[in-house]
Computed example of a mutant assay.
Amino acid sequence: MWMLILCLFLRVHARDHHYYKPEWEDLDTRTLPKWYDVAKIGIFVHWGVYSVPAFRSEWFWYYWREEDIVYLVGKAVKTYDMEFGIYYSLMEWENKWYQIDRNNNYNTSIFVERVIKPDIKQLILDYKPSLWWSDGDWDADPSYWKATNFLAWLYNESPVRHRIVVNDRWGSGSYCHHGDFYNCDDRFNPKTLQHHKFENALSLDVQSWGYRRNMVPLDTISISQLLGTIASTVSCGGNVLINVGPTKEGVIPPIFRERLLQMGEWLEVNGEAIYDTSPWYHQNDSLNPHVWYTCKKETYDPLRVSDVPRANDSILSIYAIFLLWPVDDTLSVKDLTNYMKNNNYHIQLLGPEKYTTLDYNITSDVVMVKLPDGANMTSKSAYVLKIS
């Protein structure tokens, strides 16, 4: 285990009493614990021995004695009422037992029985994470890793069985097919509605997941890019996992701190368009590509977390997240038209102190919203309209 993941925000309890068989057909029926869908945003921390030389990337082996960092970080995270998760890389290329299994074309499982199985159970029992992020699995199929046996134990008997969520990296062929949520690939952002919960894992440093001392600002994602990614991902039913690589001292570099603080400031104002939301009938506006939609429903449906609302769902509000302020201070969108033609909707612009009610009209099947003077807006990256 050489990296950590901290997955954020809400504590919402889930209970599932079904006893799962160690078979994908049964494991795949598990209901996603609500806290993960509600949270939407998490922080990924790549911090390991490669942070000592801080050269090239996290793919750097170096001997480094350390304290129980997992315990210390986990304790700190839980103190702030956040969810704590663990990243675990299955492969150890230099391990002699792994090399034996690989040389046997993975027809033996010495490494899994002697290392992986006890290692994973110890981590679960000792640290009780809410999220398990598996990786380093691609050289062998799930049967070698005993993936279904582990997941059955995790869901049925482990101390975190009611709360734990896992990703889809359980061996070749498992990506985008098995898991409480799908990663599919790094930076997975399909920008279309997905019918299974997915996660967009991205690094603020576009060249590395671990800290690099030679990183320059141009190597990092801007706040505009980050907020655009959050909007498009959540609109399509996904969560966002944002990676930072601390220095060897455990300090988050200033450029990463700046991005996280900027994101936090934006969420303080506009977070209701992100947290505890669901996909709406439309995701990206068909006229204005800079607009993404989410909605808030009266009743949470744990069986349909990534689906559009049903006819009998009560929608409390629709959110239009627009990433570019129009030069004429008039926002034009098309996909709201059919829902606003025959109803008395109010449109408000979310702001730091109050909601600003806006005028609008519908012309040629286009909703045209009159915005305030853009020159007076403090944010320069993304904005939210609340339609209710």
Rank of each mutant, 00 (worst) to 15 (best):
I100W: 10
N183T: 12
L4G: 03
V251W: 09
W138S: 06
S57W: 11
N95M: 08
W153L: 04
Q262P: 02
H196S: 09
M3H: 12
I100Q: 09
L226W: 02
Y71R: 15
Y339T: 07
L90R: 04
A152D: 05
K117P: 02
E83Q: 14
L358C: 04
W64E: 13
Y211N: 03
W153G: 00
C176H: 08
T294E: 07
Q225M: 11
N344G: 13
K296E: 11
S317E: 10
S388M: 10
G228E: 06
H13W: 11
L10T: 13
W325M: 02
W280F: 13
F84H: 05
M377F: 09
N167V: 01
Y144G: 00
F256C: 06
I252R: 05
E94F: 12
K296D: 05
L204D: 02
F256Y: 14
V291E: 03
V70R: 01
N312G: 01
C7K: 04
A152F: 01
K75M: 10
L72G: 06
K297I: 08
V367Y: 01
V160A: 03
V240D: 04
M3C: 11
W47L: 11
R56K: 14
G237L: 07
K386Y: 02
D180A: 02
N338K: 14
L385N: 00
L72T: 10
P53A: 10
W209S: 10
V166E: 03
E23M: 12
V73D: 02
D26M: 05
N344Q: 15
Q99R: 14
T378E: 14
M3L: 12
D185K: 15
A39H: 05
R11D: 09
V251D: 13
I315C: 08
C184A: 10
